[in-house]
């Protein structure tokens, strides 16, 4: 067992508190005494281990801190938010005009109009002023009087096209379900395939939808929610997805580098519900202003319905 004063000397040496003369003399001793050298190496490893242990502790503390930008900061930095804000306002105004005009002509029993939109390629820059290009294509579903229009937005200039982005409503005879899909990927260019929902098919299965989906707590049902949700993602290595969702803005932290997620937005007479699909698992997005783990949907019946809606989108 080494002497305590020997350990003290070793620690003193490793802490770098020895004078250059003392250190040189100690190093000579180390070179000539293998036992002292072994003990010195051992103590060095212990000190290193304690330091590493403490670092791990403090890093875990830092990892728990939410560093996502506040909305003021985000809006200041992101041109997309500014542009998106404009789009959202235009969408809201367009929706209002449409609904007002439409209610005079349509059957009053009609409870809701459905709006189908697909917004793709939404790379959200956090750090730099981005240059975004969008293009708008229109897709008209071959459904006779149940006309569904879906828009895929990609690669053109936001400023040029803003005025054109006005919601296009879908008419359905029964309670309608709005299915908006937002696929987002960071860095890579990605244009999702989108096919408009067959409103007729959804209507036929509305018994199932109404029975279970209506039991699920509604995120919100205000008119302002009709604007598309804004999503900001941060790629992490964690297999868990963390999120915050408020004011129609969704923050996501998760490992989306290998597989992008998909968002199912369901608007019905009872309000808006949002689900996220990633790696074949469905998650429910609820109003939440603190970063927390996204709850996975476990209800088999609900999952079946979500799959049905997704398949019909």
């Amino acid at each position: 067992m080494p002497q305590e004063n020997q350990i003290d000397r070793i620690e003193h040496y490793h802490s770098g508190n020895m004078s250059p003369e003392e250190a040189a003399s100690f190093e000579k001793e180390l070179a000539s005494d293998p036992t002292l050298k072994a003990e010195s190496d051992f103590q060095s490893e212990i000190i290193q281990g304690i330091k590493e242990y403490r670092k791990t502790q403090l890093k875990a503390r830092l990892d728990a801190i939410d560093v996502s930008p506040g909305w003021v900061e985000f809006a200041q930095q992101s041109a997309l938010v500014k542009s998106f804000g404009g789009i959202a306002i235009a969408t809201a105004i367009g929706s209002g005009v449409y609904f007002l005009a439409d209610t005079k002509e349509e059957n009053p029993a009609m409870r809701e109009m459905a709006d189908v939109e697909a917004i793709a390629e939404m790379t959200v820059p956090v750090y730099e002023e981005p240059v975004f290009e969008w293009a708008i294509q229109e897709y008209i579903a071959p459904q006779g009087k149940e006309v569904t229009k879906a828009r895929t937005i990609k690669n053109a200039t936001v400023a040029d096209e803003q005025s054109e982005i006005t919601p296009v409503a879908t008419t359905a005879e029964t309670e309608a379900i709005t299915n908006a899909v937002i696929e987002e990927k960071q860095e890579e260019s990605f244009t999702p395939e989108f096919s408009a929902p067959d409103a007729g098919d959804i209507s036929e299965s509305s018994e199932v939808s109404a029975a279970t989906l209506d039991d699920v707590p509604v995120v919100s049902s205000t008119e302002s929610d009709l604007k598309p949700i804004e999503v900001e993602t941060r790629n992490t290595k964690s297999s868990k997805i963390k999120y915050k969702y408020y004011d129609g803005k969704l923050f996501l932290n998760g490992n989306f580098s290998s597989e992008p997620y998909e968002i199912l937005e369901i608007n019905s007479a009872t309000g808006r519900r949002i689900y996220l699909l990633h790696m074949n698992k469905y998650y429910e997005v609820r109003i939440n202003d603190k970063l927390s783990e996204l709850p996975e949907v476990r209800d088999v019946k609900l999952i079946r319905e979500l799959r049905l809606i997704k398949a019909n989108k």
Partner: peptide, 28 residues
């Protein structure tokens, strides 16, 4: 592997020992 063992042994210590040793050796 040796570093892993050292960390494992620190984990076995009580909170007081962990605190004293990390404050002394890491924070100085």
């Amino acid at each position: 592997e040796r570093l892993r063992i050292v960390k494992e042994c620190i984990e076995e210590l009580g909170d007081v020992c962990k605190g004293v040793l990390t404050y002394y050796y890491f924070e100085g």
